[in-house]
Structure formats: C-alpha cells, structure tokens
Write a protein that binds this DNA or RNA. Structure first.
Lengths: 205, 205
DNA sequence: TGTCTAATGTACGCAATGTCAACATTTGCA
DNA sequence: TGCAAATGTTGACATTGCGTACATTAGACA
C-alpha cells in the first residue's frame, strides 16, 4: 500500500527512512525507559529504528553526539517541568528530583558527559539554569539576593539534586533507611533562606 | 639479579606475579591519574601490571569487581582525609571537594556504579558516612541535632559535593564563571545551621 | 628430598561494539 | 530528463569483556 504523503511523511520507500535523526532519539528514550545507559549501543538504536547498524553516522558524527542529542532533549523537558511561573525553588527541586527518579537512566545520561559539549546540549542546560535562577529569585526571603548569589544558589540546588539522585541510584545510600535521605525541596528552601553564600573559596587546598 | 626475599616479595619468578591483585589496583590508580574511567580496560590494566590479558580473572570475578575494589580504596582514602577529629562539616566538605577535583577520574569511578554493590565498597562508603556524621555532630549549632537529622545533613552534604563535582567535571557549569560556583564548605555550614530538616516528603509526585 | 595438588598465569577463541570505506538507492533540482 | 547530493547498506577492522583449555609454579606432605 504505497502511501503518497508528500511532506513530513514516514515510510517513504522503506529505504530512505524519512526522519531517522528524530527516530533515533525517540528510540533512545524508549530504550532508556527499560534499561541502563551503559546498555545503549549504536547498533541497538539503529536496529530499533529499523535501520542498518551504521546508518546513524549520516546524522551524528559519533555515538557521543547521538547521546548528547538525547540528553539535550532531557534538559529541555526538565526545564519545561520547572518553568511554570510562580514555582519556588523548593518545588523546582522536588520536580527535578521526581524526574530523575522516574527516568533514572535518562537522567544519568543527561548528567554524564565530559567537559567538552556540543552547542545544543549547552543551550538546553543554560535554559534549565535560567529557570532555576528565576525560581530562586521568586523565593527570595524578603530582601532578595544579589544576582550573582541567585545564580550560586541555583547551581547549589542543581548540584544537590544531581548528587542526591546519584546517591540514590547506587552511589552510596543503599544501606540507609529511606527516612535518612533528606528532602531536596526542604534543602533548597533552606539554602535560599540561609545566610549569604560567598563565592568559591580561595584555591588554597 | 635474582631477589631472594621470601615473603611478600615481587619478581618471584617472572611467571607468578606475587601480588597481582594489589598490583592491578595500583595500576588502576595510575591510569586514572592520566585518563578517564571510560578508558580503563581489563587488558590495559593487565598489560600495565605486566601480565596476560585474562590473568585478572584469577582475582576478580569480572571487570566491575576490579573497579569496585579501586573505588573502595578511594572511599577509604577520603574517609581518612575527613577523619581528623575536630574537623567541622564545612572543612570536611572542602576536603572532599578537593579530593574530587585532584583525582577527577578516580572520584568518578567511586561515584559511579549501580544499585548492587560488593561488601568491601559498601563498608568503605559506610566509613565515610560515619566520619561525615561525626563532623556534623561536631558542628552542631548550639542545641545539637537529633541523631536522624545529623545523618540527613551528612547525606545532604555528601550529595552536594557529589553534585558539584559532577557539574564541574562536565555535567553542566562549563558556561559559568568560576565566581558563580558556590563554595561547598559554606553550603555545608549553611545546612547545619539552617532550620530543621524533615525527612523526605510524602510519595505524592 | 621428591612428588602431588592447588593456585596462578597464558593462549586462544567468541560475540558484541564503535567506526570507517565502498557501494547502492533515492530525492530534488537544473 | 539527467545528474549530484543525501541517505542507507554491506562488509570489514580493531578493541573489548569474557570463557575454556592448557602450562607453570609454589607449597604441603611423604
């Protein structure tokens, strides 16, 4: 049954895929819902998208680039979850932690990665940070914070969520009762309402 | 020059290694000082220890077990760095962060890993947590904390250091000025002197 | 001292993986 | 209509974790 949809169509000819790039990212999300990030293979993603093992190289220079695209999609998603205006930093932290828990492998992929990063991922991360800074400013305890301090607090909350998720997912608190794990929302609110937060200390170790 | 040291010796016969297990761990540390954890290969470690590619399987059931042994050594080291009595939680956090920065790849290996973990690593982590809880108790703001709360604060500080190290090493703050990165020591002290910290919230997402 | 057994290391092979080069097919434009 | 660029396939190579069969040595025991 030859389908004659002209633009933006699937199943163009069973040879050309149509939009393999997007399909690979979707397949990545799908597989991440059912397994760890270490189990992602280029061949596996390609097979999942119904395509040959080396076809992804027409859309991504290497495996890392594909994973980065998936990670960027994740940051956009998290930023959207945190975005609704009026959300304070505590609620933002709680929503991030919830995302990390619900999509464990995806979150790990987002958080992983080396120092050099593509533009798309960098921008997506910047978007999340912007939302977090906004939430911090909305949560200002009366006198508000200096702009630099709002950023520092936002980064601190971000790091807190990243670290707690890591500890939960196997980095360390397996032996702890759940009651011993602090609540990221409470911690975040504690950080905004806490005393001032100077910048990183002098480089003396 | 045949060495005739009887016990605990190296170069016994150029066939049997002497103490391959320890040598593999040392070689792991050596290679981690010069490269990322993803570049560690069993064959590479074996070659570095002057031994055949499958010899490590006589001492570790698989690659993950070797990496866990290296990680456990790291936690023991960090616990020792944090241990000196009198250290408050802020200084403990600063020392952990310093270790994470100086031994980036080693730290990543320690923090990585899935939910199931060997006894040695579990115990080493427990030792670090014990030290952190002690530091929190020493830092009590006047009235001291309930024991559960000291643990929660220690876990929070641990998570903070883990998250900040991850963000620094490529998880997100590449675009930030160094002045925007909060100081873990200040954050940690802020958490102990902050308001009370209830346990993790109800499971309502 | 000589011998046997278990511990330790080696040789070799297998399947999976990331990557690349050469080739095939399709699309879209001149 | 014809051709060039985009896209996908096939086959290959090196590396990796891991398993099996064999070789070598150390140490206990007679």
């Amino acid at each position: 049954m030859p389908n004659s949809l002209p633009a933006n169509a699937k199943s163009k000819s069973a040879y050309h895929h149509g939009d393999l790039r997007a399909a690979l990212i979707r397949e990545g999300l799908r597989q991440l819902e059912a397994g760890a990030v270490a189990e992602l293979s280029l061949r596996g993603l390609a097979k999942g998208a119904g395509v040959s093992g080396s076809a992804p190289y027409r859309h991504f220079p290497d495996k890392a680039a594909l994973l980065e695209a998936i990670a960027a999609e994740g940051y956009r998603r998290v930023a959207a979850v945190v975005a609704p205006s009026g959300v304070r930093i505590g609620e933002a932290a709680r929503r991030m932690a919830s995302f990390a828990e619900q999509h464990g492998a995806w979150w790990e992929l987002m958080v992983a990665g080396g120092p050099s990063v593509g533009a798309e991922l960098e921008e997506a991360r910047g978007g999340l940070l912007t939302e977090l800074v906004g939430a911090v400013e909305r949560s200002g305890s009366g006198a508000g914070h200096a702009p630099d301090e709002a950023i520092r607090i936002a980064v601190a909350v971000w790091a807190l969520v990243v670290g707690l998720a890591r500890l939960r997912a196997g980095g360390g608190v397996a032996l702890l009762d759940e009651a011993m794990v602090p609540d990221p929302a409470v911690l975040a609110e504690s950080l905004v309402s806490g005393r001032s937060m100077p910048r990183a200390g002098a480089p003396r170790p």
